[in-house]
Design a protein around this nucleic acid. Structure first.
Length: 555
RNA sequence: GCGCCCGUAGCUCAGUUGGAUAGAGUGUCGGCCUCCGAAGCCGAAGGUCGCAGGUUCGAAUCCUGCCGGGCGCACCA
């Protein structure tokens, strides 16, 4: 419908003023106030400059030029020059049948046209359990992935992790210490060793010769406390398995796991360095090899190869993104914590320096700000080393998967978030997610009542024209704008828009439910109301699915 | 010091890319179950959109400068 209005406007403008460029679709938006019609455009105001005429005059000319369409009831000028469109009642109600006909596909589009897109998210190092921040990344990243699937992209969810660097060496040393009976309180404990209890668990499993399966590998503990390589391999697999179990409990699945070590073993790191040198953007200084990232917008040059020989982490990072590009991902999104925002300029600079046709703004980044966890009125410090942080598992166990996912995705990623565990636990029944789920359960209950009374629902017997109350209008408007919501949430990387939309939809439904009886004797009216209510249920199901939240039939 | 993000009702947060009278939840106060689920609904109160300028028909939204909070500024990852 929105598209129809845009097309009509563009056509009218072109015919009224052939010189005006209408390549960009005219700005059309949903009205906030029903008195302003269903859609409004500010196009007349934006044309005042070029046409040097009063906006209301321009609006009038456009309206006079508009092609008649049976789906548009009337068009009015309002305020300083808005053009308000009022849909014809039949066209307005058509949304109900659109939903019922499309079912789970309602809201989906082919905007992406099958284009490949990769969303890399979580990407936690396997040095401990996932914490709340990872949970936010998982909720946001997975919701974005679902949004892109719904808008016709071919989506790959990818998890990248470092399985060989300094932090992993530290992990191995920590597990080894535990395996030898050393505890963090002992003098012999490694200086920066991971102190969490989970390290002891890993050590015990290793000594017991357990076999753990993670990603596409299987590792058996060698039970030898002196074999550091074996310990490292086992510890990584063990912790990856734990992380995956948490992610599974959170209903997040990845398609591909990429290992940093593979970038070395496949020669990608080496090739990237050679290519950067050949491109002429490197120099040697102080015994190290530098990349002139300042040529590409970074605020200082970066060391690629340290004086002692090893590469800095950013080299495999660039190599990894070259691999992404070569794998055909013309669109790539990296969802990560805002504390890593410094790497963005670096990675993009490295990719530009290679001059292999990668666009300047590639890849896209979605950064989520910190989650502050409150417990007992005090902030819980997030420290991997101390091992005293709140894990994703803690939240799932205490608050539930649905509420945790909803909360973590319902906030704009750019904003810091406070997650009060006590509040979430004690008031779990007042979480907005229950409000939405309750709307769904209520509709299912109506269906049950219908059957109990020996009645049948029939769309054919429904007279949708009877749906003329303000509550019904509001609900129809809500379901009809769902496809636009999905479209814009995907384009804006805005999972929170889905959460807030569902809140609004449930609100419109609950009001309707309290205001009007659905199961009335008048069959034409009853079936019309049921058609609307069942369409609402479908949109609730589809929207909750985007968030990865369940739609229970009973609560 | 430099860079990125944030500042909207007591609290937690939205705000359709610059639109019309700034909205929800929660909390407070007052109503609604003989009726499809009261995990619900209806109403009231609550605002200098951090502050000050600027841009224009029009600013919570864009620009500049301050103030406040967070996160980064390694030959760590």
């Amino acid at each position: 419908m929105k598209r129809l209005v845009q097309d009509l406007l563009a056509d009218a403008v072109t015919r009224a003023w052939p010189d005006i460029d209408t390549a960009d679709a005219p700005h059309v938006e949903r009205t906030r106030d029903a008195a302003h019609g269903d859609f409004a455009s500010n196009i007349a105001m934006t044309l005042t400059k070029t046409l040097r005429r009063n906006p209301r005059e321009i609006a009038q000319t456009i309206i006079d030029t508009l092609t008649e369409d049976e789906r548009i009831d009337r068009v009015e000028i309002a305020g300083p020059g808005f053009i308000n469109f009022f849909l014809a009642p039949a066209a307005f109600r058509a949304a109900i049948d659109d939903v019922l006909a499309a079912g789970t596909a309602y809201g989906q589009s082919d905007t992406g046209a099958g284009q490949k897109i990769m969303i890399e998210f979580v990407s936690a190092n396997p040095t401990g359990p996932l914490h709340v921040g990872h949970g936010r990344g998982a909720a946001v990243g997975d919701c974005l992935a679902r949004l892109f699937e719904a808008t016709g992209f071919e989506v790959t969810r990818e998890f990248y992790y470092n399985d060989a660097g300094a932090q992993i060496a530290n992990l191995a040393v920590s597990v080894q210490a535990r395996a030898k009976g050393i505890t963090p309180e002992d003098d012999a404990w490694p200086a920066d060793g991971y102190r969490g209890d989970y390290i002891a668990d890993v050590a015990a499993a290793y000594l017991a010769g357990e076999t753990v399966a993670a990603d596409d590998r299987e590792v058996t503990g060698a039970a030898d406390a002196d074999n550091l390589d074996a310990i490292r391999e086992f510890a990584v697999a063990y912790l990856r398995r734990e992380q995956d179990a948490d992610l599974k409990a959170f209903a997040v699945d990845f398609d591909v796991y990429s290992l940093e070590s593979a970038l070395y073993s496949e020669g990608r790191v080496e090739r990237t360095v050679e290519a950067l040198v050949a491109a002429g953007h490197t120099y040697e200084a102080d015994g190290a090899l530098w990349l002139k990232t300042t040529d590409f917008g970074d605020d200082k040059d970066r060391v690629m190869r340290k004086a002692e020989g090893g590469y800095t982490y950013f080299v495999p990072d660039v190599a990894y993104h070259v691999a992404k590009w070569e794998r055909g991902y013309t669109r790539a999104i990296n969802e990560q914590g805002a504390d890593h925002h410094g790497t963005i300029a670096r990675v993009r600079a490295g990719l530009q320096a290679l001059a292999i046709g990668i666009p300047e703004g590639w890849p896209d980044y979605v950064l989520h700000q910190m989650v502050t966890v409150m417990r007992g009125g005090e902030e819980v410090k997030l420290s991997k080393r101390a091992g005293s942080y709140v894990t994703l598992r803690d939240l799932i166990d205490e608050v539930g998967r649905d509420a945790t996912r909803y909360f973590l995705a319902a906030r704009k990623p750019d904003s810091q978030q406070t997650f009060d565990i006590d509040l979430a636990r004690s008031q779990s029944e007042e979480n907005p997610v229950y409000y939405i789920q309750y709307a769904h359960a209520r509709i299912c209950s109506v269906l049950g009542q219908l059957q109990e009374r020996g009645l049948d629902y029939s769309r054919e017997a429904a007279d949708l024209a009877r749906l003329d109350s303000p509550h019904e209008q509001r609900l129809i408007t809500a379901i009809s704008r769902y496809p636009e919501l999905v479209e814009s949430a995907a384009a804006d990387f805005a999972p929170q828009a889905v959460a807030h939309y569902l809140r609004d939809l449930a609100d419109a439904f609950h009001s309707y439910y309290n205001a009007q009886q659905f199961l009335v004797d008048d069959a034409a009216l009853r079936n019309a109301r049921l058609a609307l209510v069942f369409a609402t249920r479908q949109v609730l199901v589809n929207g909750l699915k985007l968030l990865g939240v369940s739609a229970p039939e009973q609560m």
